[in-house]
């Protein structure tokens, strides 16, 4: 610890916070933290949790139509993982002093967002493969960086999530591989899915650094450890050779290996289209949220019954010990 900043009375909470961040130590729930740090952390973890939960819908859409029992069992397990990831993240978010009821309300009222990527439809079985390969691939690139984030419970949730995401990406790639090596119609289905998911997967990593309103402060606080553009480049570099292996064409005429940079150059992302989806005008925004709200409301009687049962059991327990 920096002795120079320690007064006779010890560091102030704000000094202590800055020292922890500077030392690369984690911030834990009951530590003093700037209100803006708490707000940023709640916003980011909540958005991440909501994304996992809403993210069950596009893939859940194909559970009943999976092409084999093997694929169906895998998809059910994957969608269950997404629910689990949402719960790890809500658990982390609640340590910041916000309740799950509040988080649900904020999502249901559209006052907190989830990732724009889940507002696109899953039109064919190949989309399930493309989501695992590309969307989960992009998510892994982001989440691996976040295992080093400064808020302890968030970092720990990311470690848990990353361990499980690898299965998601590999099962997606396997679907793409099977289709790419299948009939002409199957190959076309795979290419069509890549065409539709490529650009949204790049955009989901967030606006370019010069337009990202949160990046600078978030880097300072160790919330973000890599910028959106750095993560995006990493994702492109990893994914292009995989597309080449599949024999599928990445839908970007500007894509070219840059020997000097040692990275793939890629074309301009259509940010206007991205912001349209973020603003609520994507193909599935209304449907996704309406489905989530309906599931919550339809489940109200179950929650009431479970509470009534718990109260009754507790009453019996008290009567037995009386």
């Amino acid at each position: 610890m920096e002795q120079s900043t320690v007064t006779a009375a010890g560091p102030t909470p704000a000094e202590r916070f800055d020292q922890l961040i500077a030392a690369g130590e984690k911030i834990e729930p009951r530590d003093w933290m700037p209100e803006a740090y708490r707000r940023t952390m709640i916003r980011q973890i909540a958005q991440h949790a909501h994304s996992e939960v809403i993210g069950q819908q596009p893939e859940g859409n194909w559970i009943t139509r999976a092409p084999s029992l093997r694929r169906k069992a895998i998809l059910v397990a994957k969608v269950q993982d997404e629910a689990g990831h949402g719960l790890y993240l809500y658990s982390a978010c609640e340590t910041l002093g916000i309740s799950r009821d509040e988080l649900n309300d904020l999502l249901h009222q559209g006052r907190q967002k989830y990732s724009s990527i889940f507002n696109y439809p899953t039109l064919s079985w190949a989309d399930v493969g493309a989501i695992g390969w590309l969307v989960d691939g992009a998510a892994i690139a982001n989440q691996v960086a976040l295992t080093r984030t400064s808020y302890g419970p968030y970092a720990r949730a990311m470690v848990r999530v990353c361990k499980e995401e690898s299965f998601h990406q590999r099962q997606g790639f396997e679907i793409m591989m099977t289709l790419a090596r299948g009939s002409e119609a199957q190959r076309e289905m795979a290419q069509d899915a890549l065409n539709r998911w490529w650009w949204p997967s790049l955009a989901m990593l967030g606006p370019p650094d010069e337009q990202s309103t949160h990046t600078e402060q978030s880097m300072q606080w160790g919330i973000k450890v890599e910028t959106n553009d750095e993560i995006r480049q990493k994702f492109v570099d990893q994914t292009v050779p995989q597309a080449q292996f599949l024999g599928l064409a990445v839908p970007d005429p500007a894509l070219a290996w840059n020997e000097e940079r040692g990275h793939w150059d890629f074309g301009e992302i259509d940010w206007d289209a991205f912001w349209e989806v973020v603003r609520g005008n994507g193909p599935c925004n209304r449907e996704r949220l309406a489905h989530k709200v309906k599931a919550w409301e339809d489940g109200a009687w179950v929650r009431e019954a479970a509470l009534a049962h718990a109260a009754k059991q507790e009453g019996r327990g008290l009567a037995a010990t009386a």
């Binding site: 729930p29 609640e94 340590t95 799950r100 009821d101």
Partner: peptide
Amino acid sequence: MTDRATTTSAPTVGGYPLW
């Protein structure tokens, strides 16, 4: 708990306590 911002209240979801 050790990992919670406040220890005085028991946060709920739809009335469910936290464990």
